[in-house]
Simulated scan of single mutants.
Amino acid sequence: MPTTGPAPLAATTRIPPLTPGMRIGLYGGSFNPPHAAHRAVSLLALKRLRLDRVWWLVTPGNPLKDNHGLPPLDERLAQARSMADHPALIPTGLEAGLGTRFTYDTVATLVRRYPQVRFVWLMGADNLTSFHRWQRWKDLAELLPIAVIDRAGCSLKATASPAAGALGRFRINEAEAATLADRAAPAWVFLHGLKSPLSSTALRRQGLGSASGGPTAALVEK
């Protein structure tokens, strides 16, 4: 049975268990609310990249967004655990534990502390369109490989984005996706196969939660 109630915040802000040689996808966001597309992206990445785990980095607050009205971290973590419902999908508030605010600082800390772990950054295609606005985004691309997961209506805009252009020579063929975690950064791949149009922003506008089924329950995972 999945854990749906809030766990002690101190426990959820610790770095999850890991061992040398593990292949771990890092999937960041506010998860407000978490929904079935988050799960589908993670399962797709697990399979196509041959990952051992995907950590959902539930941020205390996105520096690029207005965090007014953002639900408490422990509440979003509880919802994320309920939605993840898979032993390899691990929602964590480790950024709050580390005291990091920007993705680069979080990843740099993890890579430095665990050099024998193969981390991969996961992002939706919509995030690639704004990736060039992230703090130290080029340095982030030098820290770990990146997998961009396609999203309905975002393919052309994402692959024509400033970041995609700047990192174009480091893109690998999708047929080689299983090798991404073993590659030295910078390296990235664009993965197709996810057809969900869901987004947390759209769900909030519709006033829909994450755990009550609704349209999220009908998502087909490929």
Rank of each mutant, 00 (worst) to 15 (best):
P91L: 09
S196K: 00
E221D: 15
P33R: 02
V220Q: 14
V111M: 10
I24T: 03
L191H: 01
A108H: 08
A211I: 11
P63A: 08
K138V: 10
M123A: 09
A184I: 10
G213K: 13
A160P: 01
R204K: 13
R53W: 11
W134A: 03
L167P: 04
A175E: 15
L94P: 10
L143S: 06
K65H: 10
R133H: 12
V120R: 03
S196L: 03
S200Q: 04
S196W: 00
V117D: 07
L73C: 06
A218F: 14
L98V: 10
M123I: 14
I15F: 00
L128Y: 04
T129W: 04
D150T: 14
L98F: 08
P60G: 09
L77A: 00
G209Q: 09
I24L: 04
S82C: 13
T92A: 09
R39D: 04
L194M: 12
W55P: 00
S200A: 13
L110T: 05
A163W: 02
F131P: 07
T3N: 06
A175S: 14
F119S: 06
F170S: 13
P8Y: 06
L191P: 01
Q116M: 15
T92N: 02
R204F: 11
G209S: 14
V117I: 13
L219C: 15
L156R: 14
K47R: 14
G153M: 10
P63I: 09
P197E: 03
P186K: 05
P197L: 04
K195E: 12
A141K: 01
T12M: 03
A152P: 00
V189R: 00
R76L: 03
A108Y: 00
L26D: 01
L156T: 13
L122V: 11
G25S: 06
T12H: 02
I15H: 00
R39A: 07
M1V: 15
H86S: 05
R204E: 06
A177F: 09
A175Y: 11
T201I: 06
L198F: 02
H68T: 15
R133Q: 14
R23S: 05
A141Y: 05
P20A: 01
A11Y: 03
A37N: 06
L49T: 03
W188I: 01
T59K: 08
M22Q: 14
A163M: 06
Y114F: 15
R76F: 00
H35I: 04
P145M: 01
Y27V: 09
D105W: 02
G213N: 12
L70R: 07
D66W: 06
V107L: 07
G69L: 08
F190C: 02
L18R: 08
R205A: 13
R113Q: 13
A160E: 15
P115D: 08
A217Q: 12
G193R: 09
A163L: 05
M22Y: 09
R81M: 05
N127H: 09
T3G: 08
F31Q: 02
A211V: 13
D74S: 11
L44I: 11
I149E: 03
T216P: 03
P34L: 10
A184G: 09
A166F: 12
R136K: 14
V189P: 04
A141E: 03
E221K: 11
A125H: 02
F190D: 01
H132A: 10
L156E: 15
R118P: 02
E142G: 14
A163I: 07
L18V: 04
R171S: 05
A10D: 07
S130F: 07
S199G: 08
A36F: 01
P60I: 05
